[in-house]
């Protein structure tokens, strides 16, 4: 089974985010990065499928030079090789454009399965995987919690809302977006880290992907991003800070005498 794992590198979860003066994005220089959580689970699931059914796991990551760190981490965990697309010149929040570029890279490979996380922790549009499947002409299933290989296809458990689930069957090749918590993520071993150094990371640019500047142009789907900002608060929040004991007493008093909920 040849599996391609789409993996994004995102700022670590509790990063202190500072918005640029023009509101175009956050200051990225001081940030630390990690593998997007649900992509991490997708990678683990791919490694488990490979161990059970043999095959190959190829990492695909788009982003600036720094994403090579995430790629190396994935290779150390057991992925066989990787593809890196440097998108510094065409960074966009439009999932349609990002999916087109990823599709161009995947079309160069024969594959049985494409896995990605269900959404990224930064943009969070939860769209790129599904659009990617459409671009590749393969069926997809989202929010997947279990994968079983069958003759000629797969059977997957999709999460629905409020504790409900659904089993669906798909032929191969297909694309799945993986829910966090589907498995327990492994740690890289020292041996894995050593072996990763010899593994291939192929860098691909637009021309190698057969794409032109116009293919990655902003606005082709009608999407216009204007700015980001600190959320407008809808509720007045009373904040307590400082000495734990004083804070605790004040809060207890408020809950008893003001909110009257205890």
């Amino acid at each position: 089974m040849k599996i391609i794992v789409c993996m994004k590198q995102v700022p670590v979860k509790d990063s202190l985010l500072k918005i640029t003066d023009d509101g175009s994005w956050v200051h990225e220089t001081d940030l630390n990065y990690e593998i997007n959580e649900s992509d991490h689970y997708a990678l683990e699931e791919a490694l488990r499928l490979k161990e059970a059914h043999s095959g190959e796991v190829v990492l695909l990551s788009m982003g600036p030079e720094r994403v090579r760190e995430a790629i190396k981490q994935g290779l150390a965990k057991g992925a066989d090789r990787a593809i890196h697309i440097d998108n510094s010149s065409f960074t966009t929040q439009d999932p349609f454009v990002n999916a087109r570029v990823l599709a161009a890279a995947i079309k160069r490979e024969e594959f049985d399965l494409v896995l990605s996380g269900l959404q990224t922790d930064d943009y969070g549009s939860a769209q790129t995987g599904v659009i990617l499947a459409e671009n590749l002409g393969v069926p997809s299933a989202t929010i997947v919690m279990e994968i079983q290989k069958q003759n000629g296809g797969i059977k997957v458990k999709r999460e629905l809302e409020s504790g409900w689930f659904q089993w669906v069957e798909l032929p191969l090749p297909s694309l799945l977006t993986i829910q966090s918590g589907i498995n327990q993520i492994r740690y890289a071993t020292i041996k894995g880290i050593m072996m990763a150094k010899k593994k291939e990371i192929k860098a691909l640019g637009l021309s190698e992907l057969g794409l032109s500047e116009s293919d990655v142009e902003e606005g082709q789907t009608g999407l216009v991003f204007s700015k980001i900002y600190v959320p407008e608060k809808t509720k007045k929040t009373e904040i307590f800070e400082g000495d734990p004991r004083e804070v605790a007493q004040k809060l207890a008093d408020k809950l008893k005498n003001e909110a009257k909920v205890i």
């Binding site: 985010l17 918005i19 956050v26 929040q93 606005g219 009608g222 999407l223 216009v224 991003f225 204007s226 700015k227 980001i228 900002y229 600190v230 959320p231 407008e232």
Partner: peptide, 8 residues
């Protein structure tokens, strides 16, 4: 963080 988007 909140983000504003429009259509064109």
């Amino acid at each position: 963080i909140d983000a504003d988007f429009t259509f064109d």
